[in-house]
Design a protein around this nucleic acid. Structure first.
Length: 509
RNA sequence: GGCCCGUUGGUCAAUCGGUUAAGACGCCUCCCUUUCACGGAGGAAUGAGGGGUUCGACUCCCCUACGGGCUACCA
């Protein structure tokens, strides 16, 4: 076992957008694989044809690629353990389910939905509001344990729908050894006879996960904490199928929680509180509704995985900024927390700001260019790349580059005159008009020269430089932000500078 | 209701029996800056409660409280 090759998997269901928690699960799997020179497998768990959403698989791949954590093996890069979509593995599950029946560890059940509801109604009490299909109730149901062999065969042959359920033993302790939580003990009496094979012939998660983890030789099975209660079913299955000594090591990750209230983070929380929950934009193929993703919100993939990695894990030092390769070196399962972490969008933005500061102008160029272009600003790469260092410290999200850069390319659409008006008087207008005249004849248009000229001109008046520098900024950029004013003036050029000042002057009259 | 998991500032968190209980985000003050940021210096703010064990508990054990997950022919 110790020399077993490290193989881990990320096994999402293609049912919609890829949740932040899902990306973190994928990331932790990836990091573990990289750290130990193992293989990171992608398996598509598409056994629920009712919830299957077209395009979701492709989308998941794209999200992983954007994050830089593409799988080593999966439906799009087949290894020797394919197929990697559960829907394409259907026949295998059936044969294992039948084997379990033969062995007496599972049984056929013919109960209809109505009959199940009836049973639950019948056994419902104040002390037991949700009765289970288990040792107590299965004796009263229609299954191969209560029916004669003939009846069972007849039922199956005549096409009556059936499921196969696991027969949970009574009064047994089932022990899970979790890499994060240690020993967790379940009493089998609390576990119900879970459906293994559905009436449509598809396996449920419970059967599929153990069959596939076995066949794909998964060495470590990591998943979210929401799976902890069903772990005993899986452990039993490993045992009943005779694979107990090949069972992977388990670890259940803590959940990512809502920032405010309680409960795990959902897409709705993002909509409600104004931040993304999905990795990338997700368009629902039925409704056409678009749900915002981190990518489109202006996150750098490096920042996104960095923030995710630090949600429930840290390396024990106070370091917070890590790149992927460094994470892969330092990652370890035993430094993962047990408790869930509330998601804090403010901190997420801080991570992104740090990564923007860390990135070079050249790295940022294509992204910034694209943002400008979606806002109808087209410019040369030379110009953009020169401008980026001036403003990148002021940007937390990539989209901030638009506001920070737009006035270099076009006159501000809105000018915050209210900030000027309060202390405005005629003497200031007169000064600026005079200064503009001076500028018109200036041949050397540099920020140093402009600043000199401005200060000299103002020295001959009663005004102080500070009284006019802010108004000048607002006239040029539209608001109180951006790099030093004279630098801006030098970059936008003489015509624009003069035009913008004149325009504001007329507005002030 | 039952079962399981969890609980250090508002949030992310270090500590693995002995510390003035780190650090970060956010917030506040100041410096730098005649803008906004960045940067720098400070500040407020934490061991859920109660019992044990121990010379000594945030750290180990028990109880309580609180929070979460699960309780589908969904994953």
């Amino acid at each position: 076992m110790a020399d077993k090759k490290i193989r881990v998997r990320f096994a999402p269901s293609p049912t919609g957008g890829l949740h932040l928690g899902g990306v973190r699960t994928a990331l932790f799997n990836y990091l573990f694989a990289k750290k130990h020179g193992g293989t990171f497998v992608l398996r598509i768990e598409d056994t629920d044809q009712g919830r299957y959403v077209k395009g979701a698989e492709e989308y998941i791949l794209n999200c992983l690629a954007w994050c830089g954590i593409s799988p080593d093996e999966g439906p799009h890069n087949q290894g020797e353990f394919g197929p990697y979509r559960q829907s394409e593995r259907k026949a295998r599950y059936l044969s294992y389910a039948k084997k379990l029946v033969q062995l007496g560890y599972a049984y056929y059940a013919f109960d209809t939905t109505e009959e199940l509801d009836l049973m639950r109604e019948k056994f419902k009490s104040s002390t037991n509001p949700s009765p289970q299909y288990n040792a107590l109730t299965r004796a009263e149901m229609k299954n191969s344990l209560t029916l004669s062999e003939d009846e069972v065969t007849k039922n199956i042959e005549s096409g009556i729908p059936y499921v196969i359920r696991i027969k949970i033993p009574s009064a047994e302790n089932i022990v899970l050894n979790d890499m994060i939580r240690g020993e967790v003990i379940f009493n089998s009496d609390e576990v119900d006879d879970k459906v293994l094979l559905k009436a449509d012939g598809m396996p449920t998660y419970h059967l599929a996960v153990v069959v596939d983890d076995y066949e794909m030789q998964i060495s470590h099975a990591f998943r979210g904490e929401e799976w902890l209660p069903s772990a005993p079913v899986h452990i039993l299955l490993w045992e009943y199928l005779g694979w107990k000594n090949q069972m992977p090591q388990w670890a259940h990750f803590p959940l990512i929680l809502k920032p405010d209230g309680k409960g795990k983070l959902s897409k709705r929380d993002g909509d409600r509180l104004g931040f993304p929950v999905y990795a990338m934009d997700w368009t629902d193929p039925k409704s056409g509704e678009i749900t915002k993703g981190f990518k489109e919100m202006g996150f750098l993939p490096q920042a996104f995985i960095n923030l995710l990695a630090l949600l429930g894990w840290n390396d024990g030092t106070s370091q917070e900024i890590f790149e992927l390769t460094e994470l892969a070196e330092k990652f370890s399962i035993d430094r993962i927390h047990k408790g869930g972490a509330k998601f804090d969008f403010e901190k997420a933005k801080w991570f992104n700001g740090e990564w923007i500061k860390k990135s070079s102008a050249n790295d940022l160029l294509p992204l910034v260019k694209k943002i400008l272009e979606t806002n109808n600003i087209y410019s040369s790469e030379e110009k953009i790349v020169a401008l980026i260092p001036l403003v990148k410290d002021r940007c937390q999200l990539l989209n901030d580059f638009y506001t920070q850069l737009a006035y270099f390319f076009q006159d501000p659409q809105e000018i915050d005159l209210s900030a000027i008006k309060a202390k405005w008087d005629e003497s200031k207008s007169i000064f600026l008009k005079g200064w503009i005249e001076e500028l018109k004849s200036t041949s050397e248009w540099t920020s140093i020269k402009l600043e000199d000229s401005f200060k000299q001109a103002i020295a001959s008046t009663q005004l102080k430089p500070g009284e006019l520098q802010l108004p000048l900024r607002i006239m040029l950029v539209g608001g109180k932000f951006g790099p030093p004013v004279f630098e801006i003036a030098s970059l936008i050029g003489k015509d624009s500078t003069i035009r913008r000042i004149e325009h504001s002057l007329t507005l002030l009259n």
